[in-house]
């Protein structure tokens, strides 16, 4: 239960901390799928309301939020009468539609990223994803996540070095070799 004070404000800061850490990532993900800003905002609100109500039972916020947003996005498409859309196609298109002949490398990179996200903390994963995937700068990420600039940069490079380590394990000595 979220304890509320006399002003009606939740006493616990954990919801806001999680919200700060994941909102921009969730929004960016939703927006990249549906390309409608207002709908993306509504979907994010719905996702975080559900998160707020279940917060005490959730162990991995990032995973939970991703799962939830898939459902909410699916509901959104149903409501918009795009019921024929395949949710797997929408979210797991890693093996589809790739045209330049490097499908295996692409899938390897995606898997490595997923592995790192699995092993490292949720928040570092979110931070890395925002910078690497959604093209946020360090300063923008720091602002969105309520972090310091140096802290943001350090955590990103930490994740990036883990990624290069994983690539080495796969026989790729330098990341430039992938270019």
């Amino acid at each position: 239960m979220n304890v509320r004070n006399r002003l009606g404000i939740p006493e616990t800061g954990s919801f806001i901390e999680n919200y700060d850490s994941y909102y921009s990532l969730v929004f960016s993900t939703v927006y990249s799928k549906i390309s409608n800003f207002h709908d993306a905002e509504d979907i994010c609100q719905e996702v975080f309301i559900r998160f707020y109500n279940k917060m005490d039972e959730i162990e991995s916020p990032r995973k939970w939020l991703y799962g939830c947003l898939r459902n909410v996005v699916l509901d959104y498409y149903k409501e918009k009468r795009h019921g024929d859309i395949d949710i797997e196609t929408l979210f797991d298109d890693i093996g589809l539609g790739y045209v330049n002949g490097f499908r295996d490398t692409r899938m390897m990179l995606k898997n490595i990223m997923d592995e790192i996200f699995e092993t490292e903390g949720d928040r570092d994963a979110a931070l890395f994803e925002m910078i690497a995937v959604y093209n946020y700068s360090f300063a923008e990420t720091a602002k969105h996540l309520n972090l310091g600039y140096k802290q943001t940069r350090y955590r990103y490079y930490n994740m990036a070095s883990k990624l290069t380590d994983k690539l080495r394990e796969k026989g790729i000595e330098r990341i430039e070799d992938l270019l």
Binding site: S28, Y31, S32, Y98, N100, F102, T105, R106, L109, K110, M113, A132, V133, Y134, N135, Y136, A160, L163, I175, E176, L178, L179
Partner: peptide, 15 residues
């Protein structure tokens, strides 16, 4: 470099 790699393999969704 990392970004260039992710862009090359179409793993980014830049905003």
């Amino acid at each position: 470099t990392l970004k260039q790699v992710l862009i090359k393999y179409d793993l980014t969704l830049p905003l």
